[in-house]
């Protein structure tokens, strides 16, 4: 009997598989398809202080082995998330959920996190300082160590639950940003968000996406993500949530060997709505195949 359990910032999870924010809504769409309690947890749709429609369409472009999205943080705003989405989720998910938060100012982040921190269902706060699809916020907080630390401090000051800062790969030195977050009190780091990308339509000779650029995700970015998780693991002592192009139990194990305590699955959910359930089901067999008896023991095993 292999052990698939892991621990993320003091919260025990039955397995490390977490559908990533923006690919799983607020959970209940998927709960119609299978019992989502089989997941380690999931990170819900990026939530902001005020409701947002997001960017104009088209918001999606296909790429070889991946896709670009520029949704732009469409969400009903934190009040409605708490009053409408979380009660709906409570009916189909009994584990602590990861609350994903975005903002346009340090105050925004603190405001939204403080509200969600009080929700019993919320286990972790995942603070997204890396959304490439919004202007005047999002990624701009995740591209300098100072700004990332400032957001971290502000959120930590008003919350009690573990705060995980979600970092952007669109930086020169992700390690210095991860370290700044750790020093500012972050309980964990999640990485990587999408890579800034673009496609141009040969017929119209214009960008495919209305926002011109968007976040590139999917299996193509997996090696970049593994490398960055590996680098950050060497530099920090707080747990890491690894993500970027993960689509199989093998990928989950590889991410954990690089240093991840838990692993998110993003774009793959959009192609195969059952992929996270299947990864959870396949993990024990794949662990056996590689002689792994306890997942906790392999975290950072490649170092």
């Amino acid at each position: 009997m292999v052990k698939t359990a892991t621990n993320l910032c003091g919260i025990e999870m039955s397995n490390p598989v977490i559908p990533a924010s923006g690919t799983f809504g607020y959970g209940y769409e998927f709960a119609e398809l299978y019992d989502i309690n089989c997941l380690g947890t999931f990170s819900f749709k990026g939530t902001t202080k005020d409701p947002r429609f997001g960017n104009p369409t088209p918001r999606i472009a296909e790429c070889p082995a991946g896709m670009i999205n520029a949704v732009g943080l469409q969400n009903p705003g934190v009040e409605k998330v708490i009053s409408e989405e979380l009660p709906k989720l409570a009916k189909c998910f009994s584990k602590p959920v990861m609350a994903n938060v975005s903002g346009f100012s340090v105050e925004d982040y603190a405001y939204t996190c403080e509200k969600l921190d009080k929700c019993e269902q919320v286990g972790w706060l995942e603070v997204n300082v890396s959304c490439p699809n919004v202007h005047g916020g999002g990624m701009s907080f995740g591209t300098s160590p100072e700004a990332a630390a400032q957001v971290t401090k502000a959120v930590k000051a008003v919350t009690t639950k573990p705060v995980i800062i979600k970092l952007s790969p669109n930086v020169t030195d992700i390690v210095s940003i991860a370290k700044a977050c750790e020093e500012a009190g972050a309980d964990g780091i999640s990485l990587i968000n999408t890579l800034l990308g673009m496609r141009i339509d040969l017929k119209t000779k214009k960008p495919v996406i209305a926002n011109k650029m968007g976040g590139f995700s999917g299996s193509a970015i997996f090696p970049v993500a593994v490398r960055m998780v590996y680098q950050v693991y060497e530099a920090v002592n707080i747990p890491i949530v690894g993500m970027g192009g993960v689509s199989s139990a093998e990928d989950v194990i590889e991410m954990m060997l690089a240093g991840a305590s838990a692993v998110q699955v993003g774009a793959a959910n959009l192609i195969d709505p059952f992929v996270c359930r299947d990864i959870v089901n396949n993990l024990p067999e794949v662990m056996k195949k590689y002689g792994i008896t306890d997942l906790k023991e392999i975290i950072g095993g490649a170092h």
């Binding site: 429609f53 369409t57 088209p58 918001r59 472009a61 896709m67 949704v71 495919v208 709505p273």
Partner: peptide, 27 residues
Amino acid sequence: EERMGCGFGACMGCSCKTKYGNKRICK
């Protein structure tokens, strides 16, 4: 018609505004 990501309501790739609020073309 709209360019879609998932086609089942998860990604918000194909949202539009209507008089009755935001809707996902796919769902």
